[in-house]
C-alpha cells in the first residue's frame, strides 16, 4: 500500500526530527491537561444545574468531550501542520518541489508533516472516552467498538477534507493565515452534542464544517444511540466529500502559478 508506505516513511523522518525537541513534549502535555481540565470543569458546571442535556447524561457527554479532544489531537498532529505547510509553500513557491516528484501530489502534501508531541491529545482524549464508557455501566459490544473506530476514522477523513478544501483556497487567496484560528473557533462547538444547536447551525455544523459527523456520530456509536440511517448518510457524505475534495484540489492545482522568481 503506497500511502501507508509513504506515511511510515515520513513518520520516521518526523520522529527523528521531533525527538530533538523534547521540551515540546512537556508543552504539549501541559496544553493537553489544560484542555481536558477545562472541558471537565465546564461539563461539571453544566450538569450541576441539570441531569440531561438534549437527552445526553453527563457520562455520555464525557464520551463526546473525549472524542473531541482525541480528534483535535489528530488534527493538530497531522492535518493542520500539513495544511499550513501547503499554504506557506503556495506563497513562497516551494510547492514546486512536491509537484515535480513522481508521486501523487495530494498524497505527498498530506503526509509530509507530523507533530509527534501533539499526539498526547489523542491519548488523553482516549482516556476521557474510556472514563465516560466506564461510568455508563452498559457493556460495549465488539460491533460497537469497531463501529466507533470506523466512524472515528471517517470523522478524521471528513475533517481532513474540510481542511484541504480551505487550504486549496490559497491557490486563489494567497494569504490564508487566518485558517487555523477560524477552524479552532468553530471546532470548539463540537464539545456539545450537535442536537443542542438550532436547525440552521446544526446543518452547517454537519455538512459545511463536518464537526457533527466527526465528533457526535462516533460518540453515538458508543452510547447506543446510533441509527443505521446516520451511518449510511455519514458514509455517503464522506465519499462525496472525498471525491469533491480531490476534484477541487486538482482544480486549484491548475491555478497554481508558483511564486514567480
Amino acid at each position: 500500500m503506497r500511502p501507508v508506505q509513504l506515511a511510515l516513511l515520513y513518520l520516521r523522518l518526523n520522529v527523528m526530527n521531533e525527538v530533538q525537541y523534547r521540551a515540546n513534549f512537556f508543552i504539549a502535555a501541559f496544553q493537553s491537561l489544560l484542555s481536558v481540565g477545562v472541558g471537565l470543569a465546564v461539563l461539571a458546571l453544566v450538569y450541576s444545574h441539570t441531569t440531561t442535556l438534549n437527552g445526553w447524561t453527563e457520562s455520555e457527554l464525557l464520551v463526546i468531550v473525549g472524542v473531541q479532544i482525541l480528534l483535535s489531537g489528530v488534527i493538530h498532529a497531522t492535518i493542520q501542520p500539513n495544511m499550513e505547510r501547503l499554504v506557506d509553500e503556495v506563497r513562497d513557491g516551494k510547492l514546486d518541489f512536491a509537484l515535480t516528484k513522481p508521486e501523487d501530489a495530494q498524497l505527498l502534501i498530506s503526509l509530509r508533516e507530523l507533530r509527534l508531541w501533539q499526539t498526547v491529545d489523542v491519548i488523553s482524549g482516549a482516556i476521557v472516552v474510556g472514563v465516560g464508557i466506564a461510568r455508563l455501566h452498559n457493556s460495549i459490544g465488539v460491533g460497537h467498538a469497531f463501529g466507533f473506530l470506523a466512524l472515528l476514522l471517517l470523522g478524521a477523513l471528513l475533517l481532513y477534507c474540510f481542511w484541504l478544501i480551505l487550504a486549496t483556497g490559497s491557490f486563489w487567496v494567497v494569504n490564508m493565515w487566518f485558517l487555523a484560528d477560524l477552524f479552532e473557533g468553530v471546532y470548539q462547538t463540537g464539545r456539545w452534542p450537535i442536537g443542542i444547536y438550532p436547525g440552521w447551525l446544526r446543518y452547517s455544523m454537519t455538512y459545511l464544517v463536518p464537526i457533527g459527523f466527526a465528533v457526535t456520530v462516533p460518540a453515538q456509536a458508543l452510547t447506543n444511540r446510533l441509527h443505521w440511517t446516520t451511518v449510511v448518510v455519514a458514509v455517503c457524505f464522506g465519499g462525496a466529500l472525498t471525491a469533491f475534495t480531490r476534484w477541487f484540489w486538482q482544480f486549484g492545482l491548475r491555478r497554481y502559478s508558483g511564486a514567480s522568481a
Partner: peptide, 27 residues
C-alpha cells in the same frame, strides 16, 4: 529534475542522508 538555486528541499534539521533516503522511496 528541477534545481532552483535559491530554494532548498532537504529536511532542515536532519542530515542530508535521511532526505536522500526519502527520495529513494519517492522515486
Amino acid at each position: 529534475t528541477l534545481v532552483m538555486g535559491n530554494r532548498n528541499q532537504l529536511q532542515w534539521d536532519l542530515p542530508a542522508l535521511d532526505s536522500f533516503e526519502l527520495n529513494r522511496a519517492i522515486y
